[in-house]
Amino acid sequence: MPPLHIPSEEEVLGQGFAFKPSWWHRYVEPPWWPEALDRLPEVTSRPGYRRITRRDVFALSVDPTPEGRVGLLLGAYIWGTGESAFLVGRRVRTFTRTPLETVGKRLVNAADLMHTAGPIAAYESLLSRQDNHVKFMGPAFFTKYLYYAGGLQPTMQPQPLILDKFVARALNANFDGWALRDNGWSGATYGRYIRLAAEMAEQEGPPATPAGVEFALFKARP
């Protein structure tokens, strides 16, 4: 096992970024815009900015309706984009190029599938040309959705985790036998990754968690 420092749950949940709600609000309006985003803490040194953490995004996961699932995905996009305003115009296409009613229905279906058949089946259903695929949403963001839709206390094993290019590069750099591309991973590859994270957390022992392993990999990216 590589010498990765696995952070505490509090450190994981506290990972956050500053953003301007106006960057996103112009594209996604109520009832799809979660009111909770307007109550996030302001960044006092940066007028117009608020801070969003993993814990804040998890708070959006309690609403299982299509509107709630779109709001959760939006929270994941905001958190995953952070201060990179130049990326917003490209990333909002997930919300503007497909009717949000359709997006919401597919997100509900994917979350339900995850809770019945597991995260690998849900992952595969969101891939291109599959039943729950949403145009312009790739694995880097739909794994964020699955991670947050699993809730703070996920019951499925292995647990859903975020897989993006930074985690993929860290896997390549820290483990033998990994040679992942920056995107386009199969369901089998996703399953291999989340099982590895579960095994590492179990070997480390409490309070290590699979999400802590994911965050450790993110921080260890080359």
Rank of each mutant, 00 (worst) to 15 (best):
R97F: 00
T98V: 00
P99Q: 05
L100R: 04
E101P: 11
T102E: 12
G104P: 13
G104W: 08
R106P: 05
R106M: 09
L107C: 02
A111L: 05
L113H: 01
L113C: 07
M114W: 02
M114K: 00
H115G: 05
H115W: 03
T116Y: 01
T116N: 04
A117Y: 09
A117D: 11
A117E: 03
P119F: 00
P119Y: 04
E124Y: 08
S125G: 02
S125E: 07
L127I: 13
L127D: 13
R129W: 07
R129E: 15
D131T: 11
H133C: 14
H133W: 13
H133A: 06
V134M: 02
K135E: 05
F136R: 03
M137E: 09
P139F: 14
A140D: 10
A140V: 12
F142K: 06
T143L: 04
Y147E: 04
A149T: 00
G151T: 05
Q153M: 13
T155E: 06
T155N: 06
T155F: 10
T155Q: 06
T155W: 07
T155M: 03
M156C: 09
Q157S: 12
P160W: 00
L163K: 01
L163Q: 09
D164R: 05
A168Q: 07
A170T: 02
N172C: 04
F175W: 04
D176A: 02
G177L: 03
W178E: 04
A179N: 13
L180R: 10
N183D: 15
N183V: 14
W185P: 00
G187S: 13
A188V: 14
T189S: 12
G191N: 06
R192M: 08
Y193D: 11
I194E: 14
R195V: 12
L196R: 08
L196T: 13
A197P: 11
A198W: 13
A198D: 15
E199G: 07
M200Y: 14
E202Y: 15
Q203G: 14
Q203F: 12
A208W: 02
A211Q: 11
V213N: 00
